[in-house]
């Protein structure tokens, strides 16, 4: 015999089960929906974080590159500057040596040889200006006058020349540079090459 209580119990259970079932689907539905949303949000945030990360990384990379790049170039520059200093010193020394050289006998010989060569080219000229260093003016004035008696010339001083001379044909606007300074200038390339190959 089924009692009312039992009936009620059974009925309640049925109702309860049904409701529970309904609720469960609802809950499942919500769970999955929210889950999706949460997942999406999560993904979105992760993406954003990743993006920020990668942007930061890029930023850092850039800075890193910049610093390394600068440092490398700086290093190269220092090296080059050092080399240049050595080079400049070398050139300076050559100049000093050349100054001393102007007191030697060899120098005198060379001076006169160059003089003959350049005067060969200016045979036709009547008016000639010489530029020499202070020392040489007195040393060579007489010699020049003796060598070229038919030519009008004047001699001026230019100590920048270090030694040697420049000669200018006043009629034809031609100049010949036989100064030690210009020799050194035009030999710089050779000096540099020798020096740098030693430094390498």
């Amino acid at each position: 015999m089924i009692t009312v209580e039992e009936k009620l119990k059974l009925f309640t259970k049925l109702v309860y089960d049904k409701i529970e079932k309904e609720n469960q689907t609802e809950i499942d539905k919500y769970n999955s929906e929210y889950g999706n949303i949460i997942d999406e949000k999560k993904k979105e945030f992760e993406k954003q974080a990743e993006k920020m990360d990668s942007e930061k990384m890029k930023e850092i990379d850039k800075k890193k590159n910049q610093i390394i790049s600068r440092a490398k170039v700086e290093e190269q520059k220092l090296l080059l500057q050092k080399k240049k200093e050595i080079f400049d010193e070398a050139v300076e020394e050559i100049k000093n040596y050349s100054k001393e050289f102007t007191n030697s006998e060899d120098y005198k010989e060379l001076f006169l040889k160059s003089l003959k060569e350049s005067m060969e080219d200016l045979k036709e000229s009547k008016n000639i200006s010489f530029y020499v260093i202070e020392n040489d003016r007195d040393k060579f004035k007489k010699t020049i006058a003796e060598m070229y008696p038919d030519t009008n010339f004047k001699i001026d001083v230019d100590d920048n020349l270090i030694g040697g001379f420049t000669v200018q044909d006043e009629d034809n606007n031609i100049k010949i540079d036989m100064s030690l300074m210009s020799k050194i200038e035009s030999s710089k390339e050779v000096i540099g090459e020798k020096l740098y190959s030693m430094l390498h």
Partner: peptide
């Protein structure tokens, strides 16, 4: 050594 006559180059002083 520096004062060789072979590279004597003329310069022109008027345009």
């Amino acid at each position: 050594m520096l004062m060789k006559g072979d590279n004597m180059i003329k310069e022109y002083t008027q345009l």
